[in-house]
Computed example of a mutant assay.
Amino acid sequence: MALAIRSLAALGGLALSLTAPGLPALANGGVTITSYGHSALLIQGGGASVLINPFRAVGCAAGLAEPRVNANVILASSRLLDEGAAVAGGTMLSSPGSYRLAGLRIEGIAVAHDRFGGRRFGKATLWRWKQGGLEFAHLGGTAAPLSAEDQVLLGKPDVLIVGVGGGAKVYDGAEAAAVVRQLAPRRVIPVQYVSGPTPKTCDLSSVEPFLKAMAGTPVKRVGRVLSLPAKLGNGLQIDVMR
């Protein structure tokens, strides 16, 4: 088993945590996604691993275990501690631009972090890339409405990762639902919401207002690990991870 893991890691310079789940998806195409809470996800597949929004356990992430995993690429919405904490290993990207790393073409798009043109929290970065045959869009750290230009740049993702908890710098449930309708993905993974006791300094709510705003859409509560094939069926599904 150890030899098999080393062989997979050698393909394309893949950097994986030996404790991270998800190897079957790497062998069969598609991706395996592991949630670490808040908006931190590890996406493995297509010969690469991408870690999204590693956090320090502060603010709304207080009490969570900080991600301690390796990845080829680390995509951060911003350099705020709850969205872009430094981790060992991998190349961290937080600024907009076009990048080619680990065999992936990654596009970062600048937007306001808040609802006031960035006057409170500055800018955030939306991310788009293709991995394991799937088009991803990561909107885990903004409360700003999408412009027509943003929609063109983001395209029509297969998998949309979107913050839903509300507060000063994250979409609330209704805003996130409007973004889902704009981009028309096949799968939605909501992030940045509170699933247990709310920390004292946290202004996020639960995932439930988003699910209510998306009434009629199939919802699957998948736990901490989600495997997706390279070809998704038609229609929309919400995958709630924890």
Rank of each mutant, 00 (worst) to 15 (best):
M1T: 13
L3I: 10
A4E: 14
R6A: 15
L14T: 04
A20W: 00
L23T: 01
L26A: 14
N28L: 10
G30W: 09
V31H: 05
V31L: 10
S35P: 03
Y36W: 11
S39Q: 05
L41N: 03
I43T: 05
I43G: 00
Q44K: 12
G47W: 08
G47I: 03
A62H: 08
A65G: 08
P67K: 10
R68T: 15
I74T: 13
I74N: 01
L75P: 06
L75M: 09
A76N: 15
A76W: 02
A76M: 13
R79F: 13
R79A: 13
L81Y: 08
D82Y: 04
E83A: 07
G84I: 10
G84M: 06
T91P: 04
S94C: 05
S94M: 06
L101K: 04
A102Y: 01
A102V: 08
A102P: 03
G103D: 10
R105P: 05
R105S: 15
A110D: 14
R115S: 12
F121C: 06
K123V: 08
A124V: 04
T125N: 05
W129S: 02
K130Y: 08
K130I: 06
Q131P: 05
G132V: 06
L134P: 08
F136E: 01
H138S: 04
L139M: 01
G141A: 15
T142K: 04
A143H: 02
L146C: 06
L146D: 02
Q151P: 02
L153D: 13
K156L: 12
K156W: 05
P157G: 04
D158C: 04
V159Q: 00
V159G: 09
G163P: 06
V164T: 15
G165F: 03
G167Q: 11
A168G: 12
K169M: 09
V170F: 05
G173V: 07
A176V: 11
A176R: 04
A177D: 00
V179P: 07
R181Y: 09
R186F: 06
V188A: 14
V188I: 08
I189H: 11
V194A: 10
S195P: 03
S195T: 14
G196M: 04
P199L: 13
P199D: 12
T201H: 13
C202I: 14
V207F: 14
L211I: 14
M214I: 11
T217L: 11
P218V: 10
V219W: 01
V222D: 10
G223Y: 13
G223H: 09
R224N: 12
V225W: 10
L226S: 09
A230N: 05
A230W: 02
K231F: 12
G233A: 13
G235W: 10
L236N: 03
V240N: 03
M241Y: 06
